[in-house]
Design a protein around this nucleic acid. Structure first.
Lengths: 333, 333
DNA sequence: CTGTTAGCGCGTTCAC
DNA sequence: GTGAACGCGCTAACAG
C-alpha cells in the first residue's frame, strides 16, 4: 500500500480540495492585508490545508520573495565557549517564536569568501562576531538581506547598542576590585590574536573603571594558558605593586591562579583575580573564581526583537542592555 | 551614477552575452555528463559568466532539484564545548571543499517540531546528536534529504561506524589506569540527564576495558560539578578500595580533583583521575589532568566524505575511526 | 467586497 | 545545441 513517489502537497492541492483558486489559498494562509475573504471560504481553505498537512515550499517562497526565513549567524574562528553557545541557543528560541529559523555557520573566513555562504542561504538577516567591510554589507543588502549586524566592533550601521556590552564587563571587573580596596590593578590579556575583538573593549572597560575610581591605568600582561608563563606574569605584577587582576576570561583567570600556585601563593591574598563568563570550571577552581557574567537570555531576546523588526520593515526597538552584566562573587577576589 | 534596482545576474544574461541558449549555459556550468559542448561555445559561456560575475540562484536551484546545497546539523540541547565546537568547524571546512555549506541549528527539540526546521532549510543531508524516530527519518527522505545520520545512538541506518567512538574513549581511560597498576576503578558519571547519550557508551567502554583487563566492574558515582558533592563521591570510592577514577569528561574530572582537595588529598595518590576532551582548564588544574582526546579533524573528514558520497549517490566510504583516540598523560594519573 | 486570472522569479532537463 | 515545460508560491490587475 505504500505510495510510490510521494509528491509534495502544494497550494494547488489545497485550492482544489477547498474549491477555490491558488491565489485565494495564498491570501488566506498569509492573512494578506487589504484582501477580504469571507469566513466560509477562509474556513474551507484552512480546513483543507490542515487536512492535507500542507506546508509551503520554502524554496519556492524564497525564490519569489527574494529572501528565506532563515537568520544566519557567522561564527568566529576562535573556539566558542558555553557562554556564546548559550547565546546562540537563546537566540534560536527567540527567533523561532517569530517564525524565523536560526542557523549558525562555523568556519574561518579563510575557507571561502563570505559571499558564498550567504548566497547559499539567502538569509533574511545576517549576524556576525566579526566586522564586515562596507562592500560586503552593500552586497548583502543588494541581495535582499534585510539586516546585517556585527555583534562586536562598529558597523557602519551604528548598531553598537546591539553589542553584548563588553566594555561594561571590564568596568565591572575593575569596579569590583576597587570596591575591595585594591588600588593598583593588572589586566591579564589573552594570548590569542583571534579574540582581540573581544579583549580590546574589555580592556578599555577596565581602563575606564580605573579612571572612574581614581586609579592608575592597569598593568597589562599577556598570559598564555600555561602555569609557568602565568607565574612570570604574576611575579611582574607583584613586583609592580599590583594586588588585583582582571582577566580576559575565566580560562585566563585559571591560568593566573595556576601561576600563583607555582609561586607558592594563593588568591586573593597573593593577588585577587576576577574572571569573565562563569564557566563550570570556575567554581571548581582552587580557590573558587570570582567572575563576571552576562544575562544571555535577555541579550538574545533583544537581539531577536531587533532582527524581527528589521525584517518586517518596522523601526528597531530602542533598548539598553546595560544592566545585564553582574559579578558572581567567590573566593578569588 | 548608482544604479537603481540592481537586478540579479541570471543565466539568461550569460546566455545572451555568450550568444547561446540558457540550456547550454546550464550544461556548461554544471559540466553535465552526456552533453557534449564544443570547446569554443564552452569557452564563451565560461567567459561571459566570469565577466558578469554570475552566481546561480540558490533558491531557484533548490526549487528545481528538490534539495539545497546545505548540510544541516541539529545541535544537542546540552551545552556544546570546545571539542564539539572544533568538530563542527572541521566539518564545515571539509564540506566547503566539496561545495556544500554546513549550518548548525541550536535549540532544544521542545522549541518546535524538528520538521519545521528542515522544511525551512531543505537540506541535502541532516546530521544530529540525538536519535531520530523512524517516522522522522522517513519524512526527511521523502522530502528529498539524501542522508540522515545520528552521530550517536543507533539509527535504523546502521551507521554506527560514523559515530565518534565514545565506546573507545571509555576503554582507553580504563586501559590507561589498568596500565598504571590500578585494580579497582570508579566511574564519575555526569549529573545531567541530557548528556546521557554520550555518557552511556563511554561508561560501557570503561566496563569493557575493566573486563578486558580482568578487573571488577567500575564503581559508578554521579558527580555534580560541586566540590562538596564530589568530596562525598571521593570518600565512597576510597572506602570501597577504588584507586583510579575515569570521569565522564574533564569538567567532571575537575570536580573530582576539587573533591579530593576538600578531603586533604591529591591526585594521583589519593585517587588517580582521567578526564575526556582536554579542555584548556585541564592543563591548568592542580594537578594537571590526564585526559583522553579524539582527533576531531580526522573524524570530521570522514564524516564529510560520507555525506558527499551519499549526496552524489555513491556508496559510502568504508573506514574506521578507531585509532583517532588517544591519552594525553599528565600528572593526575 | 470576493475571488480569479495570469505571469513572474530562475535554474534544470526532456524531447527534438 | 535549442525550445519549452516544470518546480511552487506570490501578487498586480481585474471581473463579478
Amino acid at each position: 500500500m505504500a505510495d510510490r513517489t510521494v509528491r509534495r502537497v502544494t497550494s494547488a492541492d489545497v485550492a482544489r480540495m477547498a474549491g477555490v483558486s491558488r491565489a485565494t489559498v495564498s491570501y488566506v494562509l498569509n492573512e494578506t492585508p487589504h484582501q477580504t475573504i469571507s469566513a466560509g471560504t477562509r474556513g474551507r481553505v484552512l480546513d483543507a490545508a490542515a487536512r492535507l498537512g500542507y506546508a509551503p515550499s520554502a524554496a519556492a517562497r524564497t525564490l519569489r520573495t527574494g529572501r528565506s526565513q532563515l537568520v544566519l549567524c557567522l561564527l568566529p574562528d576562535w573556539p566558542i565557549g558555553n557562554e556564546v553557545g548559550a547565546l546562540l541557543g537563546n537566540l534560536s528560541s527567540a527567533l523561532a517564536r517569530q517564525g524565523l529559523t536560526f542557523v549558525a555557520h562555523p568556519g574561518s573566513r579563510e575557507d571561502r569568501p563570505i559571499s558564498e555562504i550567504w548566497k547559499a542561504i539567502t538569509p533574511a538577516a545576517v549576524l556576525a562576531f566579526a566586522e564586515f567591510s562596507d562592500d560586503e554589507i552593500d552586497a548583502m543588502r543588494a541581495a535582499g538581506v534585510a539586516l546585517v549586524v556585527a555583534l562586536l566592533g562598529r558597523s557602519r550601521q551604528r548598531r553598537r547598542e546591539l553589542e553584548v556590552p563588553q566594555h561594561l564587563v571590564g568596568r565591572l571587573q575593575a569596579g569590583h576590585l576597587a570596591g575591595q580596596g585594591h588600588t593598583r590593578l593588572g589586566y591579564a590579556y589573552p594570548d590569542d590574536d583571534r579574540v582581540r575583538i573581544f579583549a580590546e573593549p574589555r580592556l578599555d572597560g577596565v581602563r575606564a573603571g580605573c579612571t572612574a575610581h581614581g586609579l592608575d591605568a592597569p598593568l597589562v600582561q599577556t598570559v598564555p594558558l600555561d602555569p609557568e608563563a602565568a607565574a612570570t606574569a604574576v611575579r611582574r605584577w607583584r613586583d609592580a605593586g599590583v594586588t588585583g587582576v582582571c582577566a580576559y576570561n575565566d580560562e585566563v583567570a585559571l591560568a593566573v591562579l595556576a601561576g600563583l600556585r607555582r609561586r607558592g601563593l594563593r588568591a586573593p591574598d597573593g593577588l585577587a583575580v576576577v574572571g569573565v563568563d562563569d564557566i563550570p570550571a570556575a567554581r571548581l577552581a582552587e580557590p573558587a573564581l570570582t567572575t563576571v557574567t552576562t544575562d544571555q537570555t535577555a541579550v538574545a531576546a533583544h537581539l531577536a526583537d531587533t532582527v524581527v523588526a528589521a525584517i518586517n520593515g518596522r523601526p528597531e526597538p530602542a533598548a539598553s542592555v546595560a544592566d545585564l552584566v553582574h559579578v558572581v562573587r567567590r573566593a578569588s577576589a
